[in-house]
Design a protein around this nucleic acid. Structure first.
Length: 892
RNA sequence: GCGUCCUUAGCUCAGUUGGUUAGAGCGUUGCAUUGACAUUGCAGAGGUCACUAGUUCGAAUCUAGUAGGACGCACCA
């Protein structure tokens, strides 16, 4: 980049991400840094959890993709062949709903269109809206391999979905069967159990009495759904219930419709609940269905697909179920059958997508038999072949897996992968499954024995597959892994999957199942579950609540780096993230801090001089050795945090290294002795070398500003971008613990002096006379320039032993004593107060220590090292107490 | 109902196998400030680690129970 030779005048005092972020993203793209092809390096693969193709970026995506980008960028710098595959899924229900709504606005209903015509509209919609979300991810800095962008309805991908269906069908793992399913009357489709959300609601329990045939007696049942009375085909009582013994074998009359139904006996009925009398509606309740099966009851399907009452219901035909509920309550009351209406709390199933109340409905659907398929998926999570982060989600996963039920995969929709089944007759079994119509004809001829069948006699299944039936192949199919081996063998298994715990069953579990079924191994090694992004009140951020900030708005306000920081700061793995834009502000302030740190160094750079940033430090300089030690300590700690997926801890350490260690101490101490003096070049080269290391550590978290600074520090070719540079290698020999300890004690001394000034009201500019009594006098003396640089001193006297001056303020730093001559400045009362406070603290401390040491149980039982540690504490504490008391004496 | 997890400073969270008088960031209070940065610097205040009982020489940490909260699963109409 040509503008990397800035001098002082060209660098603004405030960092402006909008000037920087798009520029570098474009540069990375132009240089193809994110593109991966198999080579001799070890791969690091991440597949994106595909967002809905017509969706827009929300805060959950921001969090999720920031985390993925951090992992991928770090891996790329570490020399892995990093490959992050982006893409979208077709979101059958959601997308179809949107298309239907759009058509309705134009006055067209789905019924007016043929399947092909509808699909054209759906594709149009997809092309119009699809990919918006991916463009938004670029704003966030996501380093995806965009050449690999995949859509679950791509031709090759679709083929793999269909082939998988056929394969599982042929293996007997997919079957067609009539079952009680979850019906979404809004989307007019069946749903899997996972797509139903049970919510507790305030409803009513209607007590309704049914007349007994040939008797004046009534039985009273209780129901929350009185409209289903229309479908009642029995009343059930517990055979042991003595209250109803006399009704055995009798019949009851359904109110309003006046249908005679049997009174059946089944110990399923809880005698304690309600009246102990249950109405049975086999077509509209799972348990009733089972009862119906056991007792050979008639089933009356009294509800249409859209939730209105059907012809079979006899009354209220065409009315919506909830209107019927109100009306039938009135009518029952008028007819004298409504005994009581009671307030009642129960749980009702809602559609995850449309939020419509689910109706249990008997219907013929396609199913995946899950029991056997899921065995390896359970085992390999429990034994940690696949690791969950945080681990606690293993419990949830196990519970689901151990109780896994068959998966309803057919959806009564058009947008999606059409089930490759072809019917040649009216019987439930008169179908074949085949990839093409031609093959279907052949198969149908064989199965039916009818050699005269032609394509015209076959009718393909109208239903499509559950979207998750395609997404579960994602880690394989994005590499075209069902048809070609070169890429999938290289990239699969992928490394990390970053996703929300909400879709553990929908997607994660099923990908694992598919992985073992089709690759014979795990689809990913680690699953990082993110938290849910919540607002300050703890509510989940959602479009419907309108409590979610617009991510792009936030990016333009704080910069992508700022948002990434804000999100990461608040998110330990698996914990919810109470989002506060304050955190983003903190992120953007950090950007500005970094910017100004560089700006300061750059102001000391001269235009015509060539600088060579170096990690070869001045071995004579304690501050250099300390800073280098800190960098390497941090490299080590950050690596450990990454191993444990504690990204926020890693980030905090890098943050503190840059802000606290580098800006507040290193740069301050690197400044030339006098204002206005320029850095000498060596100093500057070392500082820039340090800065480079810091930018490397920062890059995964804040890719934009780190690249910007990196490119400012030196002129770089396209092979030298930070994005593709080497991750700093940990070098234990760069850590000098002695130096760190020494420097920290000097930091402590400076802090103590600042503290004394602050409490005594002495200006930082006032030169003071300082005496330091320390066992480490020689080392401190050698480095006394550090003290002089950060404190304005009139005099400084350092010795292993010295006579404490009268009238002074004092402080203890470890075992070292610091005295500040105060003369006329001294506020005796304040200093006495200070010392007394300190004495109190030490005495309290010693009390605890002595309590332990005087306890023979402790001394006898605790490990020697622990006891010794207490003895040391006692020794140091008593010595300090002695010193403090002497100091106090001087004032009395 | 069953299961899992959580409760630490005003807020959001750290706290490794029990062993410094419990830490960080934000917020708050005070002070400072002409040249890297007020998007700043320095310093201070702030906690009965939800509660109770145990185990232990020693508990934020282990055990049991209580209260409150979150999530998952299954539901009785």
């Amino acid at each position: 980049m040509s503008d990397s030779t800035n001098t002082k005048k060209e660098i603004p005092a405030q960092y402006d991400p909008s000037q920087v972020e798009d520029k570098w993203y474009q540069y990375w793209m132009d240089n193809n840094y994110f593109h991966s092809t198999p080579d001799e390096r070890e791969p690091f693969t991440v597949v994106i959890p595909p967002p809905n193709v017509t969706g827009v970026l929300h805060m959950g995506h921001m969090l999720n993709n920031t985390i993925q980008d951090v992992l991928v960028r770090k891996a790329r710098m570490q020399g892995y062949n990093a490959c992050w595959v982006p893409g979208t899924d077709h979101a059958s229900i959601a997308t179809e709903a949107k298309v239907v709504r759009k058509l309705r606005e134009k006055g067209v209903t789905k019924k007016d269109l043929t399947r092909d015509e509808f699909m054209e509209h759906a594709w149009e919609w997809t092309h119009e809206h699809g990919g918006i979300i991916l463009e938004q991810l670029k704003k966030l800095g996501a380093s995806c391999d965009w050449d690999r962008t995949t859509f679950t309805m791509d031709e090759k991908y679709s083929e793999s979905v269909i082939d998988t269906f056929i394969d599982l069908f042929n293996k007997g793992k997919i079957y067609r069967g009539a079952r009680m399913i979850n019906w979404d009357p809004a989307a007019k489709t069946a749903l899997s159990d996972e797509e139903v959300i049970h919510k507790e609601v305030n409803s009513k329990l209607y007590h309704v009495r049914y007349k007994i045939v040939d008797s004046d007696e009534y039985v009273t049942i209780a129901t929350t759904r009185p409209e289903t009375i229309l479908g009642d085909t029995a009343v059930c009582i517990n055979p042991d219930d003595e209250r109803y013994t006399h009704l055995h074998g009798k019949k009851a009359i359904v109110p309003l419709v006046n249908r005679e139904i049997p009174i059946i006996l089944d110990d399923y009925v809880d005698m304690e609940f309600g009246t102990g009398c249950l109405k049975v509606t086999p077509a509209h309740d799972l348990n009733d269905y089972d009862l119906g099966q056991r007792h050979n009851l008639e089933t009356i399907n009294m509800m249409n697909a859209d939730g209105t009452v059907s012809e079979e219901g006899e009354l209220y035909i065409g009315m919506d179920r909830f209107d019927v509920r109100k009306q039938i309550s009135k009518d029952l009351d008028e007819a004298g059958n409504l005994v009581e209406v009671e307030d009642y709390k129960n749980k009702v199933g809602y559609s995850e997508r449309t939020d419509a109340v689910i109706e249990p409905r008997l219907s013929l659907q396609w199913w995946v038999a899950m029991k056997e398929l899921s065995e390896p998926a359970l085992e390999n999570v429990m034994n940690d072949n696949i690791q969950f982060h945080p681990e606690k989600f293993k419990n949830t996963y196990r519970h689901w897996m151990e109780n896994v039920r068959d998966w309803c995969i057919s959806r009564q929709l058009w947008w999606g992968h059409r089930i490759p089944a072809y019917y040649y007759g009216e019987g439930d079994d008169d179908f074949v499954v085949a990839k093409t119509l031609k093959e279907a004809v052949k198969a149908a001829k064989e199965k039916s024995g009818n050699k005269k069948l032609t394509a015209g006699d076959l009718k393909q299944e109208e239903d499509v597959l559950d979207t998750w039936f395609s997404s579960w192949l994602w880690p394989i199919s994005v590499f075209d892994g069902f048809y070609k081996k070169d890429e999938v063998d290289y990239y699969y298994p992928t490394n990390d999957l970053v996703t929300a715990p909400e879709i553990m069953f929908f997607w994660v579990a099923r990908m694992i199942i598919a992985g073992y079924e089709y690759r014979g191994e795990l689809p990913f090694k680690n699953v990082y579950y993110t938290g849910i992004v919540r607002d300050k009140q703890g509510r989940k951020m959602s479009k419907s609540l309108g409590n979610s900030p617009d991510p792009l708005e936030l990016i333009s306000q704080y910069g992508a780096d700022g948002i990434r920081m804000g999100m990461l700061f608040a998110t330990p793995a698996g914990n919810d993230l109470p989002f506060d834009s304050k955190l983003c502000e903190q992120g953007s302030k950090f950007s500005n801090k970094i910017w100004n740190a560089f700006r300061f160094l750059s102001m000391n750079m001269e235009e015509d001089v060539e600088y060579n940033p170096t990690t070869e430090i001045d071995s004579e300089n304690l501050v250099d050795r300390w800073m280098m030690s800190r960098i390497h300590q941090t490299i080590k700690e950050v690596e450990e945090d990454f191993q444990n997926y504690k990204l926020n801890d890693a980030l905090k350490k890098v943050y503190s290294l840059i802000w606290d260690d580098f800006c507040d101490w290193y740069i301050e101490l690197a400044k030339p002795a006098n204002y206005g003096d320029k850095f000498d070049n060596e100093r500057l080269n070392v500082a820039l070398g340090m800065f480079e290391q810091l930018m490397k550590l920062l890059h995964p978290f804040m890719p934009f500003i780190s690249e910007e600074i990196w490119q400012h520090i030196d002129e770089r070719s396209s092979e030298e971008a930070l994005c593709i540079s080497d991750w700093p290698e940990f070098d234990d020999s760069k850590i000098n613990t002695e130096d760190v300890t020494l420097f920290e004690s000097m930091q402590g001394m400076i802090s103590a002096l600042r503290n004394i000034r602050s409490e005594m009201g002495v200006s930082p500019k006032k030169d003071i006379e300082v005496l330091i009594k320390t066992s480490n006098a020689q080392k401190i003396e050698e480095n006394e320039w550090i003290l002089r640089k950060l404190q304005v001193l009139k005099s400084l006297f350092i010795a292993t032993d010295l006579k404490k001056p009268k009238a002074c303020a004092s402080a203890l730093v470890g075992n070292d004593e610091i005295y500040v001559q105060m003369f006329d400045l001294v506020d005796v009362d304040k200093e006495i107060e200070r010392i007394q406070k300190e004495i109190q603290r030490v005495e309290g401390f010693l009390k605890g220590v002595n309590g332990k040491l005087n306890n023979s149980n402790f001394v006898d039982n605790a490990p020697e090292a622990v006891v010794q540690n207490e003895r040391n504490k006692k020794r140091d504490g008593e010595a300090n107490l002695e010193k403090l008391k002497e100091q106090l004496k001087d004032f009395q």
